[in-house]
Write a protein that binds this DNA or RNA. Structure first.
Lengths: 226, 226
DNA sequence: GTGGTACGGATCGTATATTATCCCTCGAAG
DNA sequence: CTTCGAGGGATAATATACGATCCGTACCAC
């Protein structure tokens, strides 16, 4: 209703983009939890815009798998069950393993030093364990390893899967705290492989196995094997 | 790719979805070539709807990387260069290799028989070679092998990459016809591995290598090493 | 001739209005 | 007590309208 008569300030971003970024961030931060109903009019009002740009934003999020959309019913933040989590982790294992191997030969000494530093932080944090923090630093560690991957498409796929997982669960380690200690050990081993110029196949197997192990730990914890 | 062509039945799908499917298909079939300017109003008129649903469709396609969008300028079908093609093929090699390995143990005799039949078609078509047809059947062959993959997420990633590639180039084999003959031989070897219950790692390596070889053949042909 | 500026058409961006659909509630029949 | 159906509120789906922005072109100053 009371909309200012166009101030000279030219919008840096379109409203559609603002809506997209805002929603994505709020989903990632779990302010909008899985299952949350996204009502177009409400969101539009909150962001001080009409429903049209919000719809566009939601279409993009839909394509990224962050929200699900049903015709004439509306959008909600994607619900997830164990199998979604599992499938996504499995895919990430494949993608990240490949990206890490492809990046290995491109890592500078500085990159490796930074990765070791980050893993050092993880080790230190083991005592006063904070799953949220651990997960954040953990991601930085892995990002440091695969960021040098020369294939931007693969990198984009890895990142998209990280976002998806970040939305699904804030932290696996809050479910299986014991996994954290094993994890940093595997990080060390992975670093040694990379630094030692091990065959790329070995590096890939290690990186993939590392993530698969995290997944296995989670599954074991939630559904103890018969 | 497995969606039925829009029948005249109105109201079955939303207009936004019709626009999405129509555009996607026309892009995949190269009726809309890379670089083609997508004007909202024209498309809307063609499809007998207003611009709003078309905008939504384009947002989704944008998120999938099939079109690029510039604010206040408009959308066009994504342009691509050799490196895009290369990166996408490399990613597909990784994804498809993993999916094929994961599917291997789930294939029934009937699945395998069908795969062999399809490869038989490929062999027959070698004489009167039609790159377009070959590519189509080739895709069916691979789809038959990885369709049984129990991980739907991975499957979705593989299919998205196929679509992307289909949009980038209609057929690699039209560039490197000689590759086709090698290809069917590798198919045979891959089938033998699967049928013989070979270790999954071997199957994955074979599937990945098969695609990498196609890529290498293309690169070699376009940019001869010396 | 060169550069800049003003105009105009094309197209995008968004708001508002209208229609369509769904879902829930409530009442009546069985 | 259950089941079915009608009505109404909420919300999505789309059309239309209008303002904003870009881009090409022509005109003017120098």
């Amino acid at each position: 209703m009371a909309s200012e008569p166009m101030t000279g300030t030219v919008a840096e971003r379109s409203k559609s983009q603002r809506a997209y970024l805002s929603l994505k961030e709020r989903i990632a931060s779990h302010e909008l939890a899985p299952g949350y109903r996204l009502v177009l009019a409400s969101i539009a009002q909150e962001l001080d815009m009409s429903a049209v740009p919000v719809r566009e934003a939601i279409r993009r999020l839909e394509a990224e798998g962050l929200v699900t959309f049903e015709r004439n019913i509306g959008a909600r933040v994607s619900m997830i069950d164990d199998s979604d989590y599992r499938h996504s982790m499995e895919s990430l294992a494949v993608l990240e393993g490949a990206a890490t191997a492809l990046a290995a030969r491109n890592l500078t000494d500085r990159d490796l030093r930074r990765a070791r530093e980050l893993n050092g932080l993880l080790v230190e944090s083991l005592d006063a364990f904070d799953p949220h923090l651990f997960t954040a630093v953990n991601q930085q560690f892995h990002a440091a390893l695969f960021a040098a991957c020369p294939n931007p498409r693969l990198l984009a796929l890895v990142e998209a899967e990280w976002v998806r997982l970040g939305h699904l669960r804030h932290s696996t380690f809050s479910f299986v705290p014991g996994r954290a200690r094993e994890s940093v050990g595997e990080h060390e081993a992975l670093l040694d492989l990379v630094e030692g110029g091990a065959p790329l196949a070995d590096i890939e197997r290690a990186a993939r196995g590392h993530r698969s192990a995290t997944l296995a730990a989670y599954l074991d914890h939630e559904h103890p094997e018969r």
